[in-house]
Design a protein around this nucleic acid. Structure first.
Length: 212
DNA sequence: AATACGGGGAG
DNA sequence: CTCCCAGTATT
């Protein structure tokens, strides 16, 4: 069982803590883009020291924000959109849209972060569909991706919604992300250590055809 | 459908 | 040294 495994193997991050603010939860999703969670975990305290809220972020100098983001990379890519997002959030008095179209119209918000907002802000059963969750689902269910872009792959998303249909959607998301990050690795997956190895379709596929 | 963005960690 | 990382915006 995925949740049973996660109960003892779960990774602990500041933004997963009970007291984590909505600001921290959404902000980190921007910081986590193409960036290891452990890297963000180390970087976050100092960043929050300087930018503790949407308001502080909104009134900050964009160049200074870029400088602050340098240690985790993609700083030029993140600074402007993040600053614009902060302005929009303050302008709306921190009330988040509930429809996907409005959310994805926000700066720095794409398919993934829109789902994160629907999950964390509105409590909807939405998948945090990143590259690693896509890999996990593709392997476990032996899926053939319809699209090169995981964000618009109906098979991946339908499968994810089925997984999230029952139980704690947030915990299930974290469990899948953690399993993908620690066991279902991109190159050398540790299948022998996997809690799902009994039912995973990837093991057979793996032994017959090698890696993928 | 491809690419750029980016510093840092793991093998 | 190469590959990959809780993606997004642009071409």
């Amino acid at each position: 069982m995925l949740i049973a495994w996660h109960a003892w193997a779960r990774r602990s991050f500041p933004w997963r803590a009970d007291g984590a603010s909505l600001y921290v939860k959404i902000l980190v999703e921007v910081l986590l883009q193409r960036t290891r969670a452990e890297t963000v975990a180390r970087f976050l305290p100092g960043f929050l020291d300087r930018f503790p809220s949407w308001a502080e972020l909104a009134v900050s100098d964009e160049r200074a924000l870029g400088e602050a983001l340098k240690p985790i990379g993609l700083w030029r890519r993140r600074a402007a959109p993040l600053h614009s997002l902060a302005l929009a959030v303050v302008e709306s008095n921190e009330s988040w849209p509930i429809d996907r179209e409005s959310l994805e119209a926000l700066p720095a918000v794409g398919q993934y972060i829109a789902n994160a907002i629907l999950l964390f802000v509105h409590g909807q059963r939405q998948p945090l569909m990143d590259a690693s969750m896509a890999r996990l689902l593709r392997r476990y269910f032996d899926l053939c991706p319809q699209k090169a872009d995981i964000r618009h792959d109906p098979v991946l998303h339908e499968t994810a919604y089925k997984v999230l249909a029952e139980g704690d959607a947030v915990e299930l998301n974290w469990a899948m992300l953690d399993l993908a990050a620690m066991v279902c690795l991109p190159r050398n997956p540790r299948c022998e250590d996997c809690p799902l190895k009994r039912t995973c379709r990837y093991r057979l596929h793996c032994k017959k055809m090698g890696t993928n």
